[in-house]
Write a protein that binds this DNA or RNA. Sequence first.
RNA 1: GCACAGGUGGCAGAGUGGUUGAAUGCAUGGGACUGCAAAUCUCAUUCACGAAAGUGACGCAUCAGUUCGAAUCUGAUCCUGUGCUCCA
Length: 465
Amino acid sequence: MQLYNSMTRKKEEFKPIHEGKVGIYACGPTVYNYFHIGNARPFIVFDVLRRYFEYRGYQVTFVQNFTDIDDKMIRRAAEENTTVDEIAKRYIAEYYVDAKALDIRPATVHPRATEHIPQIIALIEKLIANGLAYESRGDVYYRVKAFPNYGCLCGQNLEDLESGARVNVDEQKEDPLDFALWKAQKPGEPAWESPWGMGRPGWHIECSAMSTTYLGDTFDIHCGGKDLLFPHHENEIAQTSGATGKPYVNYWLHNGFINIDNEKMSKSKGNFFTVRDIAKEFDLEAVRMFMLSAHYRSPINFSREMIEQAQSSLERLYTARDQLNFLAQGAQKREPNEAEGAFMAACDKSEADFNTAMDDDMNTADALAAIFELVREVHKLPLSSASEKAVAYGQQKLSALTAVLGLLNRKADGVSQDVQALVDERAQARANKDWKRSDELRDQIKAMGYTLEDTSAGQKVRKVV
RNA sequence: GCACAGGUGGCAGAGUGGUUGAAUGCAUGGGACUGCAAAUCUCAUUCACGAAAGUGACGCAUCAGUUCGAAUCUGAUCCUGUGCUCCA
């Protein structure tokens, strides 16, 4: 499998540290609000990455944190006249609600920053011992110029970074590039005991502490949004490698942004849609489909039209699944004939194409194309007397491939007895060529939430979403 | 200013040197199927001539170049987005 590594800026063959296993850390949300669809993108695409590794037989440890202490959390708590912990608990719960609705699987571990204060303090102490950090009036800062590799991820040298750095007159830093590892308590802020007095961790250090706690000093894959490349991930490298003396991460993966009117969607710009808002209007599976219809590193433009388009293509997948279920009802216990053999070969071809696409830096757009090739073959199968074996083969492939993308989760609902009674009555009316009655019944069935289609193998009933 | 992406058909979006293959999906139109539908299959959707089959031309931001051959490589230009500051 090839993965584009932001560190080297090329696609590289993925080689796990431990055969058959892969450790992934994904930067999670700061839990001070509902998450927006820009936040949802990494959750979805890296959920797919994890699913693909599992599909390929890897044992995956997937860690995604909750940032539950920072300026935004504190501000929010003050605004709502409650505690930071209360805000954290609330929006962590809300995260799980939205994640579930988007079919984002829970991570192996969801660590919270505030539950890893001892690990954070230990890491800072190590950095101080290594001469890479210093205390200054209760704050602790990272000594950027003492870490020779600083800038290795973002590809900028120290001079360029320096010219861009904001210089605060009041700073207690040795150098403008230095960043906070530990912040001394200000009045009214939550704080923890430390060797430097009461205070709280800086933003970057928490990810270093939590990732290494669960994945070891060096692990396989670290992912997150492109905007985290600098300074967040650059700082993580400096902190972790600086403390351990070992490489931190082998592959850095960064997803592109979601734009609104070709502008980055962000909380600070105010041009964002929360997942909660979108859910009022759309089936969230369509949002997932939309995200996967482009490569994860490309920017995508969000609009109502795009979600509707995704919804339509998603329906095509469901139609194929239902078609297979319909075929299964009338299937026979016999070996596949020649045409069905060709169908099974086409299934294999789709699967192979799907794997090739996913192996190429997780090209979900091409992977979807491979699934749609399979969909077409499904519809070409004769409607009656199919071979059970061939149908089951198609069902297995379709569900296996869509499951990797986290699609096709809607249940195939059975038909209730009252609907079935109408369907049976309509069959009788059609046999009598009573088209008027037949159409009435079709309308009635439709009003009950089902579509009814006539096929050469009888009536087909599907639940409408 | 420095750094990094990117500009592909009506829309979205793959493709990144080679047989007319611009995949796949969406949309629109024709045909098949149907009692009618729906779903599905199939063809078409750059321009010119033509009723049509067809013929010719152009074509993947623009211009120039490399090459027997370019959407794909090189250079320049224009444009867009992102990072350098909390942000997925």
